[in-house]
C-alpha cells in the first residue's frame, strides 16, 4: 500500500504531459495536417533512420556487450564507463563531437573526404550515425545484462561439441539472450526515433534528407505550436504502437 501512492503519482507525472498535448491538439484540422507531404516525409525518414541506426547498434553493440560481459581484460571498467558516455553527454555536445571526428575537417572525416571524396555531415548517413551514437548505450546495457545473466555452461557444452567461439556465439549464446537483445533493440530504436540534439547538430536540417520528426517538431515550435503538437502526437502514436507490439512478440512476456 505504501508503494501504491508514489506509483500512482509517478504514472500521473509521466502521463499528464501527454494529456496536455492531447488537450491542446487541433482536432478539427488534424486530418489535413496529418496528410501533409512534409509530415509524411519526416515520418518516413525518422522510421528509416531509427531502424538503420538500430541495425548498426546491433552489429556493433552486441559484440561490444559480449566483450564487456565475457572477456576479462585490463581497463574493462573504464571501457564500460566510456560506453555509457552518450547517456550523460548532452546530445548537442555529442553532435559537436561527431562533427569534430566525422566532419569535413574532422579526424576521420578529413581522411574520408581526401581518400573517397565522402563527406558525412548533412547526409542521411549522418542522421543514422547521430542516432546510433546516442542510442547504442541502451542496447549495450540491455545485452550485457542479458549475457551476464546467461548460463555460460551452455557455451562450454557447445565447445565440447566442436563449436568455436563464433559458432558458439551465433548458435548458442545469441539465441539464449535473444529476449535481452530484443528488449535492448526496442529501447535503442525508441531512443533513436526521438533523437534530436545530436542529429540537428551533426546532420543539420533539410527536408527529406536530414529532417526527422523531432527536428520538424522543434522548427514547427518556432512558428506554429499546433503544428508542433500534431507532429509530436504522430511520433507518439507510431512509437507506442510499434513498441507495444514488438515487446509482446519478441520478449514473449
Amino acid at each position: 500500500m505504501a508503494l501504491l501512492l508514489p506509483a500512482a503519482l509517478g504514472l500521473l507525472f509521466l502521463v499528464l504531459p501527454l494529456v496536455g498535448l492531447l488537450a491542446r491538439a487541433p482536432w478539427s484540422t488534424l486530418p489535413q495536417r496529418l496528410t501533409e507531404p512534409a509530415v509524411l516525409t519526416a515520418l518516413r525518414l525518422s522510421m528509416q533512420t531509427a531502424t538503420l541506426a538500430t541495425l548498426l547498434c546491433l552489429a556493433l553493440g552486441v559484440p561490444l556487450a559480449w566483450l564487456l560481459a565475457r572477456v576479462r581484460f585490463p581497463g574493462r571498467r573504464v571501457v564500460r564507463a566510456l560506453v555509457t558516455v552518450p547517456l550523460v553527454l548532452p546530445p548537442v555536445v555529442g553532435g559537436v563531437a561527431l562533427l569534430l571526428v566525422f566532419g569535413r575537417r574532422g579526424l576521420v572525416g578529413s581522411w574520408l573526404d581526401a581518400t573517397f571524396g565522402i563527406t558525412l555531415p548533412f547526409t542521411t548517413t549522418a542522421v543514422v550515425l547521430a542516432e546510433a551514437f546516442v542510442a547504442m548505450p541502451f542496447l549495450i546495457i540491455a545485452v550485457e545484462g542479458a549475457l551476464r545473466g546467461a548460463d555460460t555452461r551452455y557455451e562450454e557444452a557447445a565447445a565440447t561439441l566442436g563449436a568455436g567461439r563464433w559458432t558458439t556465439f551465433t548458435h548458442v549464446t545469441l539465441p539464449l539472450v535473444a529476449p535481452g537483445v530484443a528488449a535492448g533493440a526496442v529501447l535503442c530504436w525508441a531512443r533513436a526515433l526521438g533523437e534530436f540534439g545530436a542529429t540537428i547538430t551533426f546532420a543539420g536540417n533539410y527536408p527529406g534528407r536530414t529532417q526527422t520528426m523531432p527536428v520538424a517538431v522543434y522548427l514547427a515550435l518556432e512558428t506554429d505550436l499546433e503544428a508542433a503538437i500534431v507532429l509530436s502526437l504522430i511520433l507518439l502514436t507510431v512509437s507506442v504502437v510499434i513498441l507495444a507490439s514488438l515487446r509482446d512478440r519478441w520478449t514473449g512476456r
Binding site: 548460463d151 555452461r153 551452455y154 562450454e156 557444452a157 557447445a158 565440447t160 561439441l161 548458442v172 539465441p175 539464449l176 535473444a178
Partner: peptide, 12 residues
C-alpha cells in the same frame, strides 16, 4: 563427448 550433470541441452 561430454554428458553434463544437468545435461545442458540447448533450450532453443
Amino acid at each position: 563427448g561430454v554428458v553434463f550433470q544437468e545435461y545442458l541441452l540447448f533450450p532453443h
